[in-house]
Simulated assay, not measured.
Amino acid sequence: MRNSRVIKLLSALLLFSFTIISCGEDPVSSNEDPPVLPEFENVEPDLSYFTDNPPQNSNSNYSQAYGYGVAIGGITSFAQIYTSSFTTATSEDASFEDGQWVWEYTYSYQGESASVSLIAEESDGFINWEMTWTIDSQEFSLENYTILEGRVATDGSSGNWTFNNLNSETNTEEPFLVTEWSVSGENNFESETDYYQDGSVVTSYTFTQNSNEFTVTYSDVDSESDITVFWDNEAGTGYYQSGSDSANRLCWDDTYQDVTCSSVGY
């Protein structure tokens, strides 16, 4: 697919950094330092409970929950490809222009070139971010393609990101992954994420952490009912539930063996 080619081309140029040219003017003085570059740690939910404990029995309750955990992790891992664009940016390269912080880079290799423009602007307690790509290759060209955009509260309490794909028919961007998150105190986190295909939402999930308790609610256009997965990473127990009826819960204990839900307090 063309959008895959776009991602692969720029990712290769970014990761290997064959030729790097800072396109901005000398940094313009400002009363403040440029904002800290986002790390996107809130895009990917903490699924270490599953990744650290692969199921031993493919037919177990835990195995069913594990499958959804891996699927959600696979969706959000795509963000790493996009955010690799930030690996070269440093505070020293930022220029302050018309109330905005601007980072600009150009990459070239074997006749193909790509440029990255990253803009940050503070407004109403948030830092608004936008990254655009311009690509010139033997196969196609893109100009000012918005690969991602979003905003983060200056106190780090909330934010949202939209990761875009290329529509090969219109040569314009369209949402690929849209996520919104908030933090309320230590180890209390909530996010809502939509995954798009061909301009329409096909998968949605919410992820919440309340201290040591985690809940994921997963919705898919091809599924008749929502799926809920809950786990307690201190007790080691959890359950998988189809639909809203708690009678449909399938539970496991701290050895990941099937048990009655009442025996583990669910």
Rank of each mutant, 00 (worst) to 15 (best):
Arg151Glu: 12
Ile127Leu: 02
Gly265Asn: 09
Leu47Arg: 05
Asn210Ser: 15
Ala153His: 07
Ser108Trp: 01
Leu13Thr: 12
Asn42Gly: 00
Tyr68His: 09
Gly185Met: 06
Thr203Lys: 10
Tyr82Val: 14
Thr90Met: 03
Gly69Arg: 07
Val216Phe: 06
Val229His: 01
Glu112Trp: 02
Tyr66Gly: 03
Val102His: 02
Ile147Lys: 00
Trp252Thr: 12
Ser85Gln: 10
Thr90Glu: 08
Leu47Trp: 05
Phe126Ser: 13
Ser63Trp: 01
Thr193Asn: 06
Cys261Phe: 06
Ser211Cys: 03
Gly156Phe: 10
Ser246Phe: 14
Thr206Trp: 04
Leu13Cys: 13
Tyr49Cys: 02
Cys251Tyr: 06
Arg151Tyr: 13
Thr203Asp: 07
Ser77Trp: 07
Val202Gln: 12
Gly238Arg: 06
Glu97Ser: 11
Val229Tyr: 00
Asn3Ala: 08
Asn187Arg: 08
Tyr266Trp: 13
Asn212Lys: 05
Glu97His: 10
Trp129Ile: 13
Asp26Thr: 10
Ile75Trp: 15
Ala12His: 12
Ser115Gln: 11
Ser168Asn: 09
Tyr49Gly: 01
Ser223Gln: 11
Thr228Asp: 02
Gly150Asn: 08
Asp253Phe: 15
Arg2Thr: 05
Asn188Leu: 09
Asn212Leu: 05
Asp136Gln: 12
Asp226Trp: 03
Tyr239Val: 08
Ile72Gly: 07
Phe189Met: 07
Pro34Gln: 08
Tyr205Cys: 05
Ile227His: 01
Phe86Val: 11
Asp26Pro: 13
Asp136Leu: 08
Asp226Glu: 12
Ser244Asp: 15
Gly69Glu: 02
Ser158Lys: 14
Thr193Glu: 05
Val264Glu: 04
Ser137Asn: 06
Ser168Ile: 05
Leu148Pro: 00
Glu192Pro: 15
Asn53His: 10
Phe78Asp: 14
Ser95Glu: 13
Asp245Phe: 10
Thr106Cys: 06
Asp52Ala: 14
Asp155Arg: 03
Ser91Ala: 13
Asp226His: 05
Pro34Arg: 05
Gly74Ser: 14
Gln197Ala: 12
Thr76Tyr: 02
Trp129Glu: 04
Asn59Arg: 11
Asn171Gly: 07
Val6Pro: 00
Trp181Arg: 02
Tyr266Ser: 12
Asn59Thr: 14
Tyr195Thr: 00
Asp98His: 09
Thr206Ala: 07
Ser182Cys: 03
Ser200Met: 08
Thr132Pro: 01
Pro38Ile: 13
Ser108Gly: 08
Thr83Phe: 05
Val183Thr: 12
Lys8Gly: 12
Val259Leu: 05
Thr134Trp: 02
Ser48Val: 09
Pro38His: 01
Leu177Ser: 05
Asn160Tyr: 15
Leu118Lys: 11
Glu186Gly: 08
Glu224Pro: 02
Phe163Asn: 04
Asp254Ala: 13
Trp129Cys: 02
Phe86Trp: 07
Tyr195Ile: 00
Gln197Gly: 01
Gly67Trp: 01
Val152Cys: 00
Ile227Glu: 00
Ser58Trp: 07
Val201Ala: 01
Asn233Phe: 08
Trp231Tyr: 15
Thr170Gly: 05
Thr203Trp: 03
Val152Pro: 00
Thr255Ile: 07
Phe16Trp: 05
Gly67Pro: 10
Asn31Pro: 09
Leu47Ile: 07
